[in-house]
């Protein structure tokens, strides 16, 4: 692995995200968050802090996930369509270096957009008089891990399907993994105990992005998530990203350009 190649490639993704005005979209979304906050204010403020927090984390989670999927699902297919891969791979870098650089760029661009949205949300919440609590810092940290995992899944999907299909599947997976997990839990609970291992296996194979979302706890003023859980989620995120990058590489390493 050529670590020297990762940053130039990642930087290129970020520059492109800025110049193609992806972040304008983020700014508009930020404005929508503010308008939502304003709408809540219009209907009365007393006791609404919890809803403001809930709305803030929900909208932040929604928009940042959409951006994560869209940014990462287009990276490699767009390179293929624009025929920009050949000059890159003519340089002394491996195909894995290229994938890693592109993935890191997608994650950094997503995190940048997330930071902008989070700032807009924080301003909106402060306008409501909601103080920034420690659990929000934890929420942001875990959400960033979750976004990295979502990026990895969308990135891998884009190598197996068309960009549009990758974006659609990526969103389904990102937003539906929690629902899917609950369906499997219900099905597992209602089936004989001897066959539960099957549902357990599926559960462990489908990435559980909802685990990285502690928005409910943040909105409800729950206590902080234990550090050991944050550590376990970091390991889980690393496993998802590693698995997805491996899948991507297996698909990409022999692909004719």
């Amino acid at each position: 692995m050529n670590r020297r190649a990762v940053w130039p490639l990642a930087r290129c993704v970020i520059i492109e995200a800025v110049r193609r005005k992806d972040l304008w979209v983020v700014a508009i979304l930020g404005l929508i968050i503010m308008l939502f906050a304003g709408a809540l204010g219009f209907f009365g403020m007393r006791g609404l802090e919890a809803f403001a927090k809930d709305l803030g984390v929900s909208v932040l989670g929604l928009f940042s996930t959409i951006l994560a999927v869209l940014i990462s699902a287009r990276q490699i297919p767009e390179e293929m369509n624009r025929r920009t891969l050949c000059p890159l791979l003519a340089r002394p870098i491996s195909r894995f270096d290229l994938l890693l650089g592109k993935y890191c760029g997608a994650v950094l661009a997503t995190w940048l957009a997330f930071a902008m949205l989070a700032a807009a949300t924080a301003i909106g919440l402060l306008a409501f008089g909601v103080p920034f609590e420690p659990i929000f810092a934890q929420y942001l940290l875990l959400k960033m891990l979750g976004l990295a995992a979502v990026c990895a899944a969308s990135f891998a999907l884009s190598l197996f399907t068309t960009p549009s299909a990758a974006a659609t599947f990526g969103m389904l997976l990102a937003f539906g993994s929690g629902m899917l997990s609950r369906a499997f839990v219900l099905a597992g609970q209602s089936c004989p105990s001897g066959t539960r291992w099957f549902y357990g296996l599926i559960e462990s194979l489908v990435p559980q992005f909802s685990l990285f979302d502690i928005g409910g706890r943040a909105a409800g003023g729950w206590p902080l998530v234990p550090v050991s859980v944050v550590g376990a989620l970091t390991v889980y995120c690393t496993m998802i990203v590693g698995a997805m990058l491996c899948l991507s590489w297996l698909r990409f390493r022999r692909r004719a350009l």
Partner: peptide, 29 residues
Amino acid sequence: FRGILGDLERETAAYKDMHGHSHNDPTAA
């Protein structure tokens, strides 16, 4: 039956034993 994944969800989601649970003040809603 999910083992560690279930434990993680109980730690990250807003979850508690709801037997005999109470409710937040509805007037705030």
